[in-house]
Design a protein around this nucleic acid. Sequence first.
DNA 1: ATCATGCCTGTTCGTTTCAG
DNA 2: CTGAAACGAACAGGCATGAT
Length: 402
Amino acid sequence: MNRLEIETRIRERVPILSNSNEWKKTEKLRKEFVRDYPIKKLMSLQLDQYVIGMGKENRSFCYRLERQLDSLGRILGATAGKFGIYFGRTKADSQQKYRFAKRWGSNEHDVFEAVKSEIINLLESAERDDFEMIRANQISPNFKGKLLFIYYPEKFAPIYSKDHLQHFLAHLNISGKFESPPEMQRALMDYRKTWPKLLAEHPCLFMRFLYDEFNPEIEGSTLDSDSPKTLPILDKALQGSEFIDEFPEGKNSSKEMAKKPPRDYEKHLSNLKSIGTPGEKIVLELEKKRLSAGGRKDLVKKIIYTADIDDRAGYDILSYETDGAKRYIEVKATTGKNLGRGFYISANEFEKSKSLGNYYIYFVFSTITSKPKVFCLKNPTLDKGNFKMEAINYHVTFNTGN
DNA sequence: ATCATGCCTGTTCGTTTCAG
DNA sequence: CTGAAACGAACAGGCATGAT
């Protein structure tokens, strides 16, 4: 989604989501937890005040973080081993006792002290924004993510699964080098800051918004089976992308496949959209490189990402020739390696391709990979016999003429 | 990378309780 | 006695961890 679309969704959804006590309760729970377990006092926590599994009435640190604070991002599921040490049994051994992974130590006392100091170390690193230390911290990933959010709710997003984080970053087209989930949590919060409407609300509302708009679970099943379930981080694509000089020929180009329109055009469209924006970002990046390489760094700043601000312009990006002339670029992105299935062009884009002059269509191939290829087609004359065009959409209004 | 593990949850299905 | 509701054991599903 581009910013134009996001803005609409935020305008529609945020007032509905914020119209509830839920977020106040959520924040109250979080505050109570932090009040009961201030970082300074964590070291004096006793083992049984920490471990999960001490019976029904148990209200331990781990129990509360996982259960009571369930609405602040789930870390349920998987073994209680994620807490470093827990009390209970295993399938093979029904005896109730303290359980822990060997890497933490050889007895429950040592293990608990190690886990505690690791938690404190994590929170202190977060205070300093020391991501290297946060990354190196041995606390299990989901537990780590939740601790970070609970203690620093303005710095880290309440989303802990690496897959989900990647999924959202990809859909919001946020690029950057993310070596660990906490960095993604931070990137999402930085993104939130760019939307005053979101910034004014609780971070958990932002989380809800993301899950509503880009639900990772639902999406996996609705996408075409050949689409990847999670988009890779855009940054890799940006680095690996390059221009190519030849139009890639596919086995089926302009033969049978081209004849087949998609079965469900609407669904096909929404899939196209999800790869369209990454395609545009890739082209933006390549244009910057091209102008820099051509000695026109001054023009780099003047490139305009039109698609982000005006979806009726008929082109996606306004770039420049090295002599300063305008270059209008329409981006057509595909996950495929060639254009065997043809491409779609709107009536508006088609008109602009004829009227705007220096008009390019940039075809981005292998879009959702780490090595996208971009082919530039200058001033295409689509209706002069080089291409076969077929109308698949009409705009229809009622005839009130008589 | 891949696999086995064991945790928690929701669901099912059978049993018990109790009012009418 | 009957049907509804409550209870609870068993099971399957989902998932991140930890081991290999």
